[in-house]
């Protein structure tokens, strides 16, 4: 960013500008958009979280009251946190392993089948609103596929009200989220596997690599570290961001808040109640949770293959 040039000691802004003018001009359009629509909003969101603000009147400073209300008095937020963490802890690692595992298995197929299988696994993630089909599958009448099968097999005698039963909401949402989760990171892994230098495997054989698991750990994984780190970021961010599938499938609010997440809580206060200060507090907390989770996992993954 042009603004950073001030940190160069002694050389002077003018000299830096002269030397790198064309580069700064090339970056300028993106930098401007990035600052306006990402950097400023992040700080503004944190700023607004300390205020009481309804979009109509000027925000008034509210100190830590939003944070205190949220963490001490808002029982529904505690449900949202719990659900979000359960979601992230289950779908994050599983989806990551699925992306990696399937990419690994697919990699051993000949190119034509590889391309087909890649499409099969990747298609749900790009299908937009197609996840609504799960509403039909878990429909509460006997025309729903899940009910029809379970009744035909004699497991249930009456149709189950899937999205109206507290215990079923979360597992179904997790299944749908996993179905949607083989996205950009999956492609990155597929590509990463193809990129590994094939000679390394032959060399590995000579060095005494005994089976595919050793090959994976000692040769493939270290080689793919950049993709592993990138995939982790994408999956973590996605697993903390569940809201659309919850609202569309389980409804809003879901039965006894069984599908309530931090983002649906944010949706509630931001777009229904217009309590923007409170909503920003929710956003700020989620922001720090995501950043924290990402940084921890990055630290862990850097040790792979060592």
């Amino acid at each position: 960013m042009p603004g950073k040039t001030a940190s160069v000691s002694g050389t002077g802004l003018e000299k830096v500008w002269k030397e790198h003018k064309e580069k700064y001009i090339l970056i300028a359009p993106f930098a401007a958009l990035f600052i306006v629509f990402t950097v400023i909003p992040v700080f503004a969101s944190i700023g607004i979280s300390f205020t009481s603000f309804n979009m109509l009147e000027k925000p008034t400073f509210a100190g830590l009251s939003n944070y205190i209300n949220l963490s001490v008095f808002d029982e529904i937020f505690l449900i949202a946190i719990k659900n979000t963490l359960v979601f992230a802890i289950i779908t994050g690692p599983i989806s990551y392993l699925m992306c990696f595992g399937f990419a690994w298995i697919i990699n051993e197929f000949p190119p034509k089948i590889r391309a087909f299988m890649t499409l099969v696994f990747y298609a749900p993630s790009i299908s937009g609103g197609a996840f609504m089909i799960w509403k039909l599958i878990f429909s509460s009448d006997m025309y729903g596929y899940a009910n029809a099968w379970l009744m035909k097999l004699g497991i249930f005698s009456d149709p189950v009200l899937w999205f109206d039963t507290k215990t079923y909401v979360m597992p179904i949402l997790i299944i749908v989220q996993l179905w949607l989760s083989l996205g950009v990171s999956f492609l990155a892994f597929i590509a990463g596997f193809q990129n590994v230098d094939k000679n390394l495997y032959d060399a590995g054989l000579i060095d005494g690599i005994k089976n595919r698991w050793q090959e994976l750990w000692y040769i493939t994984l270290p080689y793919m570290k950049p993709q592993l780190l990138f995939g982790a970021v994408m999956q973590i961010t996605a697993s903390f961001s569940v809201s659309a599938i919850s609202i569309q499938l389980a409804g809003f609010p879901s039965v006894e808040y069984a599908g309530h997440t931090i983002l649906t809580h944010l949706h509630d206060y931001g777009t229904i109640r217009y309590e923007m200060g409170y909503a920003s507090t929710i956003a700020a907390i989620l922001f720090f949770i995501m950043l924290f989770a990402n940084i921890i996992v990055q630290k862990l993954l850097r040790r792979v293959g060592e």
Binding site: P41, M234, I236, T237, A238, S243, S280, L286, L291, I295
Partner: peptide
């Protein structure tokens, strides 16, 4: 910026 979902900045 990849590490968080853009919905957290939706209000500003």
């Amino acid at each position: 910026a990849l590490m968080f979902n853009s919905t957290v900045t939706v209000i500003p």
